[in-house]
Computed example of a mutant assay.
Amino acid sequence: MSEADSEVIAGETAWQGPERAPSRGILLAIAGLAWMAAMLWSARATITGRGDAAMEVTSTAYAMPGAVSASLVAGAAVALAVVTSLTRGGRTVRFAAATGTGLVLGLLGGLTIITINTDGWIYAVVGGTIAAAATIGGALAGFRYPRITAAVCWGAIGVFLVGVVLSFLQHDLLPVFGARDTSSSRADAANYFGFAQGALGGLAAGLIVYRVLRRARHRTGVDLRWPLYALAGAGPGLLLVVGEALTRTAGARVLELAGKVSELELTVQQMLSGSRLNNGLIVLFVGAFTAMVAVGRTLGSPTAPAETAPEQPADPDEIERAARDEEAKPVGSRTDD
């Protein structure tokens, strides 16, 4: 085996090593469960607090996207904690355990919505969508690089916290974006506010992902390649996009029913759906760019080649002595040029 082949094998071993024994992520699992529980409790309280049937339908449509996104992250976080606690089993066993954990968590989460009214199909649709989201999140934890999954989950929680803080400050911030007494100015300000929220969320996601992966590097001694930093930075936005896709597909009947309440409600649902998708895409690209720039600043510049020492000028006495020695040699033994 050549020296180059040995270096390649050693590099691959160091590359895969830390992925086999990441941290258990108990704190991440608790944070993910807390987020999911909070969103499900809020959704249930909002839905059951409406006495009118039409308002109950629209409240369900409003609450579903947040519960789906939280279920995605919670499924991945809890499944990651379960998988990393396994000491035996190959990749297939770990993937099955992760997917099963997400499914169980999703079924438990879906029951909290279905039990609102077991005779209403709308709650069964929402519960099934939540179960599907948690199952997909659990499957993500069974992939090859659990440290990336953990970083993505932390980044997604950071995006959620940024959204919570900005929602409390929205009334005070809208005038900064040009909101006046006219409806058009308020609509434009809301659009600008949405873009700013996505950008800040993406910035927070990229920085959080970078810090989580750097801490894993200090703990294991082996770093990831820089494209994976960009992929992890894009992960929280990708989860938002996947959550919106689930809301539009698995929960499409709920949105359609809410849109039939009135023309105004249909317009609102379309605007909210487009806003959620745009927010997810902004978080995706800004998060990837932020993580890539953050890790790029830490990459060392190529080592400059060592400067060769300048040649010393030859001593004239040495040249003259060598010429005399050459002339003193017999003719046959002289070196031909």
Rank of each mutant, 00 (worst) to 15 (best):
M1E: 13
S2T: 12
S6A: 13
S6I: 10
E7I: 15
E7M: 05
A10V: 07
G11H: 01
W15E: 14
W15P: 06
A21W: 08
G25C: 03
L27T: 14
A29N: 03
A31G: 02
A31Y: 04
A34P: 02
M36G: 06
M39A: 10
L40R: 07
S42E: 06
A43P: 11
A45F: 09
T46Q: 07
I47W: 13
T48S: 08
R50T: 05
G51F: 06
A53G: 01
E56C: 00
V57E: 09
S59Q: 08
S71A: 15
V78S: 01
L80S: 15
V83L: 00
T84G: 00
S85I: 09
R88P: 08
R91E: 15
T92C: 02
R94N: 10
F95T: 13
A96V: 15
A96C: 03
A96I: 15
A96H: 05
T101A: 01
L103D: 13
L103Y: 08
V104A: 13
L105K: 01
N117W: 08
T118I: 14
W121Y: 12
V125A: 08
G127Q: 00
A131R: 00
T135P: 09
G137E: 03
G138Y: 07
G142W: 00
Y145K: 12
Y145G: 01
I148F: 02
I148V: 15
T149M: 06
T149F: 01
A150R: 04
A150S: 13
W154G: 07
V159M: 06
V159E: 12
F160K: 11
V162A: 06
G163I: 06
V164L: 15
S167V: 04
Q170I: 11
L173E: 03
F177A: 05
S184V: 13
A189I: 12
Y192L: 15
F195A: 04
F195P: 07
G206I: 11
V212W: 09
R214N: 03
R215F: 08
R217L: 03
R217Q: 15
R219I: 01
V222F: 10
L224K: 01
Y229H: 07
A232S: 15
G235M: 01
L240R: 04
V242L: 14
V242S: 01
G243C: 09
A245Q: 00
T247Y: 11
T249V: 15
A250Q: 03
V254A: 05
G259T: 02
G259S: 14
K260R: 06
S275I: 03
N279Y: 14
V283H: 07
A288V: 07
F289P: 05
F289D: 08
V295F: 10
G296K: 12
G296A: 13
G296N: 13
T303N: 06
A309E: 15
A309M: 13
Q312L: 15
A314Q: 08
D315C: 02
D317K: 04
E320D: 14
E320I: 12
V331E: 11
V331A: 11
D336N: 01
D336W: 12
